[in-house]
Design a protein around this nucleic acid. Structure first.
Lengths: 196, 196
DNA sequence: GCGGTGACATACAGACTGTATGTATCATAG
DNA sequence: CTATGATACATACAGTCTGTATGTCACCGC
């Protein structure tokens, strides 16, 4: 029953506009990529003007950054729930986590944003920074504890985290291109088992 | 002693112009990335006009494609010579190959072109197609033979090739960001050994 | 040497990004 | 309750970029 031009508080206005922009941008970026999506398109889809966009975001890149952070957070959430609370064995956690990740990345648009445009547009350093703040941290601490407990061999922690992330990412990419997830999960499991 | 405006055959002209364009583009793409490099910049650096560029290449993307293919070919060459001729054990070949790859990718600009802009601009499918035509093929056949000889366990070949490539790529990326190559090589060796 | 083709050079149209400026609405001090 | 400032936009504009269309001149084969 709300009217379109009903008066709203500034905070609510801002929230609504930002949400509309991020949502529209996410859809367009995921469908056509960052470079092929124009700001006129985004604001039209969001039902606002370019003035609003440039009021809330410094530039197109800042909007993309917001979209990427949201995707990373969503994926981290899915993985966390997939792994569950009880510690279990380190290998079980890795297996559950990798399945949770592949499931979370079964959205092709998400793959494009996080694994293709993300690194190119934001740079690998900023992206791995975002990754560190979300999902990679869980992986690293999990590996660290597994090493301490002697469940897996002791290797350079940082490098190992990075490399395993690479396996997950490439698997997600390949699956999004039509590969069979089971094939890739078998490889992942074999490598995890081999770290014992 | 050659004069600038000396008359040349058409074939030589074309060759020289294409080379100048690809060379200038490679330098600029590697320094500033694809999106931030404009065609006016490229042609100025190459000493030609935009007319020449659009005469020899369908568009900016086609020029990028040519640069990418050249880089892939160069890397494949370096790996081939690093691995050497005599077969040796499959694990030795993997170890030599990974070292050769990391060395070939020690050029930060090359990493940017092949691992950051490449997938985003050309798409993962086209890029892995190029990869298949060059270095990845050697990896796959090597793995296949190693499996047949019983040197490594039998796993889905295509997926294994893709995943190992991912390890190499991410290691190269991390090293280009300042990581210690030795740390990553240790991980790679550990994983290779574990495939036995 | 001459018609044709290839290799450019120049001019132009359309689109896009970011900024500058104007305006209406909300928040708040008095 | 009103004046004043701040916030949230909307509109207009400048500069740049891409791709195309068109014109020119040198090479090439006959």
């Amino acid at each position: 029953m709300q009217q379109k031009n009903e008066s709203r508080s500034n905070k609510a206005r801002t929230e609504a506009t930002r949400l509309a922009l991020i949502s529209a941008a996410r859809r367009l970026f995921s469908e056509k990529g960052y470079a092929e999506t124009s700001t006129p398109e985004i604001v039209t889809a969001a039902g606002v003007t370019r003035g609003a966009l440039y009021h809330h975001f410094e530039d197109k890149l800042a909007l993309f950054r917001a979209v990427v952070r949201q995707e990373y957070a969503a994926v981290a959430d899915e993985i966390t729930t997939a792994v569950g609370e009880q510690p279990g064995s380190a290998l079980d956690a890795l297996r559950d986590g990798s399945r949770g990740y592949l499931k979370a990345m079964s959205d092709k648009g998400r793959v494009r944003i996080m694994l293709l445009d993300g690194p190119a547009v934001l740079g690998q350093s900023e992206l791995s920074q975002i990754d560190r703040e979300t999902s990679a941290d869980a992986l690293r601490t999990g590996l660290s504890e597994a090493m301490d407990a002697g469940h897996i061999q002791r290797l350079p922690l940082e490098a190992l985290t990075v490399q395993l992330s690479a396996l997950f990412d490439r698997a997600a990419l390949a699956v999004s291109e039509g590969d069979d997830p089971e094939d890739h999960l078998r490889i992942l499991d074999a490598i995890f088992a081999a770290l014992k």
